[in-house]
Design a protein around this nucleic acid. Sequence first.
DNA 1: ATCTTTGTATCGATAAAATCAATAACTAAT
DNA 2: ATTAGTTATTGATTTTATCGATACAAAGAT
Lengths: 308, 308
Amino acid sequence: MTLQQLQYIISLDNNKHFLNAAEECGVTQPTLSAMIQKLEDELDVKLFDRSHQPLTTTEIGKEIIAQAKIVLKHAEFIKEMIKNKRESLEGSLNLAIIPTIAPSLLPKFLIEFRKSYPKVDLQIQEMKTSDIVLNLNQSKIDMGILATPLEIDSLLEIPVYYEKFFAYISPKEEIYKQEVLSANNMPLDNLWILQEGHCLREQVFNFCIEKRDSKPVYEAGSIDTLIKIIDENGGYTVIPELHLQFLNDHQLKNIRNIEKPQGVREVSIVITNDFIRERLLNAVVDTVKSIVPDEMIDQRLKKFAIRL
Amino acid sequence: MTLQQLQYIISLDNNKHFLNAAEECGVTQPTLSAMIQKLEDELDVKLFDRSHQPLTTTEIGKEIIAQAKIVLKHAEFIKEMIKNKRESLEGSLNLAIIPTIAPSLLPKFLIEFRKSYPKVDLQIQEMKTSDIVLNLNQSKIDMGILATPLEIDSLLEIPVYYEKFFAYISPKEEIYKQEVLSANNMPLDNLWILQEGHCLREQVFNFCIEKRDSKPVYEAGSIDTLIKIIDENGGYTVIPELHLQFLNDHQLKNIRNIEKPQGVREVSIVITNDFIRERLLNAVVDTVKSIVPDEMIDQRLKKFAIRL
DNA sequence: ATCTTTGTATCGATAAAATCAATAACTAAT
DNA sequence: ATTAGTTATTGATTTTATCGATACAAAGAT
């Protein structure tokens, strides 16, 4: 018994005519005849009485066809389920986000997303990149927002914006006098940097401290802390563009552009490659893009993105 | 999507192991792999995550497998329905019986059958052979009790008993003096016979009036009437064995055996060849046999049965 | 009745598919 | 890094579904 055979007997029952039913099924009449005979043989039951014109469905045949319709309905429903899943804007969504993005993105994101998609039960956790990858692969979370590229086969990255790096420099520092910093010419001394685990740390190393040697660096747990330390103690650090919104006028004077090369991090929505809730994915992507300045979405920035 | 593929993913979900699942399904592991991949391609959805050990079922995969189980259940139910139908001793049963059998069989049959199978809703109609055949072929009745063989392709005959013919002769007749009648030597004069449409009429013609010519015969509507006519007016007729029970002692003296050849009619339960209620069929057959003398069930009588 | 017309089954050939054995590729653990 | 365990791939083979042509059967028409 196959779904196809069930389709065939339903069609024949509708048409009461092999040729018409065959046409409806997109096969020739001999094929339909053979397949229906085969089903009748397997079930050891005559489904149709072909001795009259037009042919009639036997008593048991009618019952079986009614049941066959139920079977096909339930089979079709599988495709329905998938379609729904793809198109649905409901259900729970477990989102993880790295600490160096969270503070500058989450506040606005939460407001926007909840307003636009109130039926989505949004759960957000802050975690570092490696944990996001782990949890994604274990299907413990649905989505991550983090710096890319990761280049992991099982994961899919959808870049949403490109964020420049800026130097935040204490007036006590020598380089404070420079209007623009050159990336490959930044002093290691007095560079404050995030603790291990933050990808931003690695990116900064990769980006401006190419000649990275054994010299010790000072470490902190968050960008906010870094800035406070520098305000009090001097020194400098590298912060992402979206963090500028949190600085007061006085602090903004400590910001310097970095050039040659210009540092940019690619921020992406990351999902597993079996993620199928396409519409929900678009919802997240669109929401993030809506709260980020247009210039940051410009794909041309991609060429400056730091790869680890 | 095929039922087989659904079976495969259910098995893999149970086993979390291609090799074991393949064994359970009675195929090799490559076959299982290929079939599951094919389904995943068709649905455009990853059902299993093979990157971990043991493999896991994806979120959507779990939902689909739950639905697949429902589909298979409903498909299996088709076979279940057929089995039930075969084995059931319930529901309605429309039975037709020819007039020359009805009076001698029905009274006892009704009592017995209703006692043994109270859940069967038995409906009985009396009709002549041609109508029974017609109604069987149109599925208007389920079963007929009549004289066979019919030799109709679409119908199935289950012989239940063999009924001898006896001559009922008025004492006024010349042949009344004979102790035994010879079938091929019976006079046409004063032979009373049933109206056209009764197969018994044709059987009598075939049986003892081989040299049937244009000579007119006298006709009546029932065996009872025939006997009353003969009692009053003289003449003779041919009656079936089971009718003897209705004759009084006086009338029984008018009975003569017929020999060379001995006439016998085969009485069968007749159904269409798509009849599947096997157990119900057996119930009817057994009931009829139980109310007929054992000698009449003897298969050896078959060779004397009259063919039309 | 005989002959069309219409409808279904059968036949032989072909195309599509499922299946297998062998083996490569991959994963996880030692 | 090596090994054991697991899944994917490959190429050959078998099975199944399909087709076109035609035979056969039943119902209508002449």
